[in-house]
Design a protein around this nucleic acid. Structure first.
Length: 384
DNA sequence: GTTCACGACTCAGAAAAATCGCT
DNA sequence: GAGCGATTTTTCTGAGTCGTGAA
């Protein structure tokens, strides 16, 4: 913690380049690149070892808007779409596995169920010096508590030490299996002691070509967005439709547990908004008194029309502020961006925008439009 | 076959920068 | 239209996933 990182020099850097391509000029006179390679199986352009974490390799690769990255992004979503036609069988298989006599098979079934239902990450083994975080396969006994009425309480630190807290009702066989897996174990012991990510992924590959645990997160996120958009979009103006989109986006972020820290000035901002609302309401009250007097033709003599107009304007302003405040509170700890960038098939959003005449710029920023260039010409009828 | 290290890629929130919207 | 605080977008780089190949 708190180390200065030394400068990276050309002789740290390996360049990956086509056999006949000209080698980029070394920017520091008298020095040279560590190595020039011609690896056409990789997508990286340059790499070097991190001076502090010796095991860590840093890469330079093409930007997100490149057709190369776009292609692999598209393949990711196509794989997730393929899961759609396999998911019925996969679910049937793990339900059967819940009561398997073979404990490894039973653990695989329950773990797959968690990954499908709760969008948990796979959970690779980690070195001791890394943060104490877990995923599905590395869940500890104390991370899951049986709460009665078939409810399981999950409580653990996931990727980036983000807390995952969720209580869910599960099928009785799952509940019983968890009790069984916990039996005769101590805190700190693995809940799934017969399992790791390679065993789990090897099993998933038997069910669908190239299937791995992470595909379920993409599948669940994109499926949820597509489903909610199609169920909840009603006639209305663009702002209302964008609201529907944000609501669906939020549900996805909750499923994926994408969080953000509450800004330091949050409470100050809220009280400021409240003050403003109070002020406006006091003003509205005055306006109503004025209106009353004007109707009775008492001074101060003001035009009825103008007062009524002002009342309408002020009421609308108050309503908007209250709505904004509600949204602010609602999204205080939820990060919508991560799922939009990494988990939601952009073709869902593009097709929805086309169907409902929402400008795509309302959904995607400039860089996202560039990143998702490959998805822009999708058919309006596209469904995930 | 199994374990293990590691290489190459995707995904994560925080911080920084740019933009918005109000006075 | 300047000045400001809030909000949104972009950048940054560490933290995961997953495959491969050597021991």
């Amino acid at each position: 913690m708190g180390k200065l990182k030394r400068r990276i020099c050309p002789n740290d850097v390996t360049i990956n380049i086509g056999k006949d391509a000209p080698v980029p000029e070394c920017p520091i006179p008298g020095e040279s690149w560590k190595e020039i390679t011609h690896d056409d199986t990789g997508t990286w352009l340059a790499k070097w070892g991190d001076p502090i974490k010796s095991k860590l390799i840093k890469y330079v690769s093409l930007g997100a808007s490149s057709s190369w990255k776009g292609q692999s992004d598209k393949e990711k979503y196509e794989k997730a779409r393929m899961l759609k036609s396999y998911i019925g069988n996969i679910r049937a298989a793990y339900i059967k596995g819940f009561t398997s006599k073979d404990i490894t098979k039973q653990q695989i079934a329950v773990a797959t169920y968690f990954i499908d239902k709760l969008a948990l990450r796979a959970g690779n083994e980690k070195d001791d010096e890394e943060a104490d975080t877990v995923g599905c396969c590395t869940l500890k006994v104390e991370n899951v508590t049986a709460e009665g009425h078939n409810k399981l309480k999950f409580d653990f630190l996931g990727k980036d030490s983000i807390k995952y807290e969720n209580t869910v009702e599960v099928e009785l066989p799952v509940y019983n299996a968890i009790l069984k897996f916990q039996k005769d174990k101590r805190p700190g012991d693995d809940l799934f002691d017969k399992l790791d990510t390679s065993i789990l992924n090897a099993h998933l590959k038997e069910l669908m070509p190239n299937l791995t645990a992470k595909v379920f997160r993409t599948f669940n996120a994109s499926f949820t967005l597509d489903d909610m958009l199609n169920k909840e979009t009603k006639d209305g103006d663009v702002a209302q439709k964008v609201g529907v989109y944000q609501h669906a986006n939020k549900q996805v972020a909750i499923i994926c547990n994408h969080q953000r820290s509450v800004s330091k000035s949050y409470s100050a901002q809220i009280s400021k908004l409240n003050e403003k609302i109070d002020e406006l309401q006091a003003y509205l009250k005055e306006l109503k008194i004025d209106l009353d007097r004007a109707r009775k033709e008492k001074p101060p003599l003001k035009s009825l029309d103008r007062i009524e107009k002002k009342i309408a304007q002020t009421s609308a302003k108050i309503e908007k502020m209250q709505r904004d405040m509600h949204t602010k509170e609602d999204l205080k700890t939820v990060a919508l961006g991560t799922s939009k960038i990494n988990y939601l098939d952009p073709r869902i959003s593009v097709a929805w925008c086309k169907r409902h005449e929402v400008p795509i710029e309302k959904i995607f920023s400039k860089t996202l439009l560039e990143k998702f260039a490959w998805a822009m010409d999708v058919d309006p009828d596209f469904r995930f």
